[in-house]
Design a protein around this nucleic acid. Structure first.
Lengths: 155, 155
DNA sequence: ACACTTGTCTTGAATGCTTCAAGACAGCTT
DNA sequence: AAGCTGTCTTGAAGCATTCAAGACAAGTGT
C-alpha cells in the first residue's frame, strides 16, 4: 500500500464529481481507502501523517463534500460516532460488534436490494434499505469476559 | 376472572422486571406510549406535564433502566438523536424520512426474522438484524422545496 | 408499624462530536 | 496572468449525553 504515491484514481474521482482537487481531499480519500469504517478522529490522524497541518474542520468539510458527491458513504450505527467507507454504489450492509464496535462488510444476502420492499411503507417513498447486523465479533466472543466490558450491556 | 389484571399496566410491567415503581418511571412509560419514536427532549417535556420537577438526568436514567430491562427499545437512525418506543419483542423495522426525520413502524416484510441470515458473517455471532428504510414521508414529498432547503445540498 | 438497606432521583458540572462564522488562501477558468 | 469562486484556517459555540456525589424514597425484614 504505497501511501506516498499520488493516486490518479482519486484525482479523476474528484474531477468526475466536479470537485476541486486539493491535497486534503486526496489525503482523506487515501485515509478512508486505507482504513475502512474509520471514524472521523482516525481519519484526521491518518490525514495528518501526510499533511500535519490540516484542521479538523477541513476534514469534516471534506467528508461532507465527498459524502454529498457519493464518493464516500457515511455510516453511523446507534451509539457510535460517524464512520466513513469508500465502498459506494453497491448495496452492502454491515455487522457491528456490540462489545467493541468493530464493523465488517456484508454483501446483501439475496443480492438485489430485496429488503427494499417494506410490507407497509405508510406512504413513504423509500429509496434505500439499510441493514445492520448486531452481534459479537470473533475477538470479543473468545475473549474472557472482563468486568468492564461485560457490564456494558445493562447495568 | 376475579383478580387477574391485564399485565398491560405499567406498574406490573415494572414489577415484572424487578424494577421499583416510581412516578418518574410510570410517567416515562406513559410518555413513550403516548408519543412513539419520541426523542429524549420530547419525553422530558411530556413527563414534566405531570411531574414538573423531574430532572433530565432522571429521565435519562429511567430510559436506560427501562431499555436494559427490555421494556423500551432505543432506536437511533444516523444523524438523529436517540429515540424510544414501547413496542418490544416483535421484530419490526422503521421508515425514516430524510427530510424531516419522521419515523414510522414497518412490520418485517417476510414476517420471521428473514434478514438475520447474512451471506458472510465474518465469524460474528449475529443476534439481531436491524433494518432502516430511508426515504421521504408523504408530507415532505408534497411540500414545495423551500429556498433554504434546496440550497442545503444537492441530492 | 418502624427502621434499614439499596437503588433511585436531584443538583451541578463536564465531556466530546459536530457545526457555525469570518477571513485568508488556493484551484480553476477566461 | 488576473479574477472569481469555492475551500481551508482559526477560533469558538452548541447540544445530547454522561459523570459524580449527596439527598431521598421504595421495598424488605423485624
Amino acid at each position: 500500500m504505497p501511501t506516498t504515491e499520488i493516486p490518479r484514481d482519486h484525482e479523476s474521482l474528484l474531477r468526475g464529481a466536479a470537485l476541486r482537487v486539493t491535497r486534503p481531499r486526496l489525503a482523506v480519500l487515501a485515509a478512508v481507502d486505507a482504513h475502512p469504517h474509520a471514524d472521523t478522529d482516525s481519519i484526521i490522524r491518518a490525514v495528518r501523517e501526510s499533511l500535519p497541518d490540516v484542521s479538523h474542520q477541513a476534514v469534516y468539510d471534506v467528508l461532507r463534500a465527498l459524502t454529498g458527491a457519493d464518493l464516500l458513504r457515511r455510516i453511523q450505527p446507534a451509539g457510535s460516532v460517524a464512520r466513513y467507507e469508500a465502498r459506494v454504489g453497491d448495496n452492502h450492509h454491515h455487522v457491528v460488534c456490540r462489545t467493541c464496535g468493530a464493523i465488517a462488510d456484508v454483501d446483501c444476502a439475496v443480492g438485489h436490494t430485496p429488503c427494499l420492499t417494506a410490507s407497509d411503507d405508510h406512504g413513504f417513498v423509500v429509496d434505500e434499505a439499510e441493514v445492520v447486523y448486531w452481534g459479537t465479533c470473533p475477538t470479543c466472543a473468545t475473549a474472557p469476559p472482563s468486568v468492564t466490558a461485560s457490564s456494558e450491556g445493562h447495568r
